[in-house]
């Protein structure tokens, strides 16, 4: 395996709060990498820095051999990192298919002139975008809801739609921020199946999750954040036994 992503000494401050301190981690191509930690540990902050939504204060990220343009989310997406959000962020008043079609934006190029003149290239590209959207909706299993507005989908389906939209950007790394949050046992099991399938189909997955059972069973490696610092980075079994991790989650014994 080779490294797909290498984060070096990522630091992020909000005023006086050091949300991230020198976090370094390496994600190998083709693995499912888990990022866990107690509430407020900095998981989502790390995600937002990685995907460019927050400017980082220190450090750099090497992705697929070149530095990632941190602070510019659209260029991060173009570089090949797609994400979902902890509190689902779909385009609520657009259909499920349109949501996925938006994901094709960075991988298509027809501009205003092509759109207004309905050029041949534009029609072909539109057809390809629409076809790909339908394929991805089928891939995550919600093709029957393609025409429905995103906000009318069930919670689980919305999570799936967000993944389909992320896949539309042709990512090498798929970053999922608490995908199982709020899901019942059946939905979580189905999600686990989907994530395994993604890995088998060649995607690298970075997973933030609160559901420890899901993370332990699914991930190849796990990093643990606590108070903005990485306190462990290992295979699940080793992380589970790590005294620092136990302390972070359960507190010190008296």
């Amino acid at each position: 395996m080779t490294a797909l992503l290498e984060a070096r000494n990522i630091g992020k401050r909000f005023g006086g709060v050091r949300a991230l301190q020198a976090v370094s981690l390496t994600i190998q191509r083709g693995e499912i990498y888990g990022l866990i930690g107690p509430n407020g540990a900095g998981k989502t902050t790390f995600f937002n820095v990685l995907t460019g939504l927050y400017p980082r204060d220190e450090g750099e990220v090497i992705f697929a051999g070149s530095p990632l343009p941190l602070g510019e989310p659209h260029r991060v997406a173009q570089a090949g990192i797609a994400r979902t959000f902890q509190n689902i962020r779909l385009f609520a008043n657009m259909s499920a298919r349109e949501n996925v079609m938006v994901g094709r934006h960075a991988r298509s190029k027809v501009g205003v002139a092509g759109a207004v003149l309905r050029s041949r290239a534009q029609r072909e590209e539109e057809a390809a975008i629409s076809r790909r959207a339908d394929e991805l909706l089928a891939y995550v299993g919600i093709n029957a809801r393609a025409g429905d507005l995103a906000k009318n989908l069930s919670y689980g389906d919305q999570r799936r739609l967000e993944i389909a939209r992320a896949l539309a950007t042709e990512p090498q790394l798929l970053a999922l921020d608490e995908p199982a949050a709020g899901m019942n046992a059946t939905e979580t099991a189905a999600l686990r199946g989907l994530i395994v399938r993604l890995r088998d189909d060649g995607f690298t997955v970075l997973l933030i999750e609160h559901d420890i059972k899901l993370v332990m069973g699914l991930c190849d490696r796990i990093a643990v954040l606590d108070y903005g610092q990485k306190i462990a980075d290992d295979v699940p079994a080793a992380v589970q036994r790590n005294p620092k991790v136990i302390e972070a989650y359960l507190g010190t014994t008296a």
């Binding site: 997406a77 008043n93 938006v102 934006h105």
Partner: peptide, 15 residues
């Protein structure tokens, strides 16, 4: 439309 609906998500989609 994506920007109208959710600008942050639109950015994350590579727009």
């Amino acid at each position: 439309a994506a920007i109208r609906e959710d600008e942050m998500a639109a950015k994350a989609c590579g727009i």
